[in-house]
Write a protein that binds this DNA or RNA. Structure first.
Length: 807
DNA sequence: GAGAACTTAATTTTT
DNA sequence: TTAAGTTCTC
């Protein structure tokens, strides 16, 4: 757990090409123009030197877009004399940001440090910390992650007395998130509501926002939306940032949502008429966006491919540059990827090519089950390492969902293969880590009710539900924050005197800790004091639950992370050197950093030669975006797994899955493996999945099948009246004891019965909410219903699996 | 108020 | 299968 933070370090092996003078990058270098263009092809050079109009770089996988971005920034500073502080570069992850900063620094020296290179979210936080007082927030606002948001929404829904079955926090939050990504605030959402469901959602949205505000907190989506609103509401603020950022560069533009697009526009768009044409008029900033529509894989969280497809319309007289030469993979791998992605409709044709030669064929393997598949992968890695063809650190294993990592872990542990799972149950989502952070957040921002109530009785200190409810009642009656109500708990009617004593002790402890924070104490010291004084650590240490041992270790790790942070030089990424009044990084800065880390920020840095052979990296396909590995295993290629079951009935979603496959295939440099399991256990019972359609889309002559389904013994194969059809939801369960068990379990639950539906019926779906049946196809197990879920759109659902209930 | 025992729901992807 | 949430019991 050492790479939780983007510690600047070259990871991409190709980065060495960009550091021709190692050790010399610290000073104030002035590279020659030739040096900055060295090794670039024509279109790449054009992108680096382009000046003036908005620029779209369509960068196919592995076409060197990161090089183009870093060289361009260096070019701006070095050749066009741009002030580094006038550059805003947006990347997808913190890690990518740190890498980019490092590489530019290698080219032009330390002055590059004051560029803003960050994610959208970090950049917005930075702006908001400075400006959000204009909206009545305090600059110490908390950032709520998904779990905090869910907790808060649960409270809101409870307050509204809504049936928790009908209105699940997740579903409501998804809806709210969509609104925010579209820059629809709670008032507009209320006005837009077209039916009862939307009215209810809008009401929840309104109260949710009110409580966020009372807690002086913003959720992830608020960070972007509020920044846009700020720039729109205060023209002088907007002018400040427009004048400041003369160069805006956005990476992964295909994954931006509407709010992010609007933010870019606020900063960069030319605006006829807004100014009177006087001397005050600010020339629009230079904008460059880089992306690849074929790698757009975040539509589910609001990303809008239209942003990249219609860039030329959005920004008149924009120029486009296409990068098609791939410097990463063999031609075999590229042909496979091209073949798959070409099945998507309505895409701009693009053909990646490489002069790296054909290389090895793709290796295919059909496993009996997921254990067999994992064993195959591990044995294959063994063979490669024994033959010195690869080191564990060269290898990545990809899968569609995090749950699939378990089998690989089991096998890898058994055979002693070093590995690291990226993502999954993340460090910062562990209970003990979240508890510790909740303490810290509530110290910095006592209005943060969610954090405060999370730890109010953790460890147990005799402040139970009863007492908590009394305090909350007091808070609501007196219009106090929960914390202020706690301080005046003796006024709460009906509160037990025993609870009152506990509350007093708690308040005293918090007061003491808060005075430490106010005194500017280091984050790690505060954290240690929190763990000690709250008794949290002691409770874990005294426990005989073996799980609690690892919890203690995780907390020690968190303290170490805090210490590392506190020891950082003052010019950390979140401190603006241009701000002379910027205080040294404190607890608040630490929490901010922690709130914005992503899975991909923890990808292990590959060792630079030496004896260390690195570790195999396991991750989801989504996390793999932007990375590359000499050896890639693409696993679980089964219809229902990948493409995921929920995408099978929907053309748009299926195309997104296909883009995901394209991303996965193009991560490989030399060797690519594709595998699937005939039988895979999914929540208890084994399921029999047909081959992924993406396998069929690979050119046959490119794949060398090490083992095929025909190699299975006959009793292992499905003996079914109708063999699995390649249709929407071609997922079949095998007959046999397991299937019977699954069926009886389903019956016992009473929800897995296939509902008999007719067009016009009203239904309730677990995540889409209420809908109306439009039409039905098929019968029995294969029955598929088209259901209109209003704002969620019309979905085709396989009734056998879809969590729908007839109303 | 706390812990045990039970039920139930969820399994897509994440800044 | 597992985790999280709810109810029950002391």
């Amino acid at each position: 757990m050492s790479a939780l933070f983007p510690i600047p370090q070259a990871v991409d092996p190709t980065s060495s090409q960009d550091t021709p003078h190692p050790g010399q990058g610290r000073g104030r270098r002035t590279p020659s123009p030739e040096e900055l263009l060295d090794g670039l092809n024509e279109p790449q050079r054009a992108a680096v030197v382009h000046a003036g109009s908005p620029l779209l770089v369509v960068a196919g996988a592995g076409s060197g877009k990161t090089r183009v971005l870093t060289r361009r920034i260096a070019w701006l500073i070095s050749e066009r004399k741009a002030h580094p502080g006038s550059i805003l570069a947006i990347t997808f992850t913190n890690k990518a940001a740190a890498e980019m900063r490092e590489r530019v620094e290698d080219l032009v020296g330390r002055r590059a440090r004051i560029m803003w290179v960050s994610t959208f979210h970090s950049a917005c936080v930075r702006i908001l910390r400075k400006e959000i007082d204009k909206f009545g927030y305090k600059s110490s606002f908390s950032i709520y992650d998904a779990a905090d948001s869910k907790r808060l929404m649960t409270l809101v829904l409870r307050d509204l007395d809504l049936d928790p079955k009908r209105y699940q926090p997740r579903a409501v939050l998804n809806w709210v998130s969509t609104q925010k990504n579209e820059l629809v605030d709670e008032e507009k959402a209320t006005a837009n509501a077209k039916n009862h469901l939307e009215e209810t959602y809008a009401e929840a949205y309104t109260i949710y926002q009110r409580r966020l505000r009372e807690a002086n907190a913003l959720d992830f989506d608020d960070l972007i939306m509020t920044t846009v609103h700020l720039l729109q509401a205060f023209p002088e603020v907007r002018e400040t940032y427009r004048r400041r950022f003369r160069h805006v560069l956005v990476d992964e533009y295909q994954d931006t949502n509407h709010a992010q697009y609007a933010l870019v526009r606020e900063l960069c768009a030319d605006e006829p008429g807004a100014e009177t044409g006087g001397a005050d008029r600010v020339e629009p900033s230079e904008l460059m966006v880089v992306g690849d529509a074929d790698q757009s894989i975040y539509a589910f969280r609001g990303a809008n491919i239209r942003n990249i497809l219609q860039f030329e319309e959005d920004f008149p007289n924009a120029r486009s540059i296409l990068l098609e030469q791939n410097y990463r993979s063999t031609q075999t791998i590229l042909n496979a990827a091209n073949s798959v992605i070409s099945r998507n409709k309505g895409r701009k044709p693009k053909n990646l090519w490489s002069d790296a030669g054909d290389g090895d064929k793709i290796t295919g393997y059909v496993a009996d089950d997921e254990h067999d598949e994992a064993r195959f992968v591990s044995e294959e890695i063994d063979k490669l390492t024994d033959a010195a063809k690869a080191k564990p650190g060269d290898v990545a294993v990809f899968y569609r969902t995090n749950a699939q990592s378990r089998v690989f872990e089991e096998v890898f542990i058994r055979v002693g293969m070093p590995y690291k799972v990226v993502g999954g149950v993340r460090f910062y989502e562990r209970k003990e880590v979240r508890d510790a952070l909740a303490y810290l957040r509530m110290l910095v921002n006592p209005a943060d009710e969610i954090s405060l109530r999370r730890i109010l009785n953790v460890p147990k200190r005799g402040i139970g539900d009863r007492a908590e409810a009394c305090v909350e009642a007091l808070a609501q009656r007196e219009r106090l924050t929960f914390w202020d109500a706690l301080r005046r708990a003796e006024e709460a009617p009906g509160i037990a005197s025993r609870s009152l004593n506990s509350i007093r002790a708690f308040v005293d402890m918090v007061d003491e800790l808060q005075s430490m924070v106010d005194a500017g104490e280091r984050a790690d010291v505060v954290l240690e004091q929190v763990l000690a004084r709250s008794g949290y650590l002691k409770e874990l240490e005294d426990s005989d639950d073996p799980q609690d041992e690892t919890r203690v270790e995780n907390l020690a790790e968190l303290v170490a992370v805090a210490r590392e942070f506190a020891d950082e030089p003052v010019s950390g990424p979140s401190v603006d050197p241009a701000d002379t009044d910027a205080p040294p990084p404190g607890l608040g800065d630490f929490l901010e950093r922690v709130a914005l880390v992503a899975d991909s920020d923890q990808i292990p840095d590959q060792p630079e030669g030496g004896d260390d052979n690195g570790v195999v990296t396991l991750m989801t396909l989504h996390t793999a975006k932007g990375l590359e590995f000499p050896v890639v295993f693409l696993t679980g290629l089964e219809d229902g797994v990948f493409p995921h079951m929920r995408s099978l009935g929907d053309q748009t979603e299926l195309e997104e899955e296909r883009r995901l496959a394209y991303v996965g295939l193009t991560r490989a440099r030399e060797r690519l493996y594709v595998s699937r399991a005939v039988v895979r256990s999914a929540w208890g019972a084994p399921a029999h999945n047909p081959a992924s359609r993406f396998v069929d889309e690979l050119p046959v002559d490119l794949v060398d099948w090490r083992r095929t389904e025909a190699a299975q013994t006959s009793w292992n194969r499905p003996v079914m009246p109708s063999l699995p059809q390649r249709n929407a939801g071609g997922v079949t369960r095998r007959f046999g004891t397991a299937a019977i068990r699954a069926d009886s379990a389903a019956k016992a639950k009473g929800t897995r019965e296939i509902p008999s539906l007719d067009p016009g019926d009203r239904v309730l779906h677990d995540s889409f909410g209420m809908g109306t049946v439009v039409s039905l196809d098929g019968a029995g197990d294969n029955a598929v219903a088209s259901i209109d879920f209003g704002s969620e759109g019309v979905k085709r659902l396989l009734l056998r699996y879809a969590p729908v209930e007839k109303l």
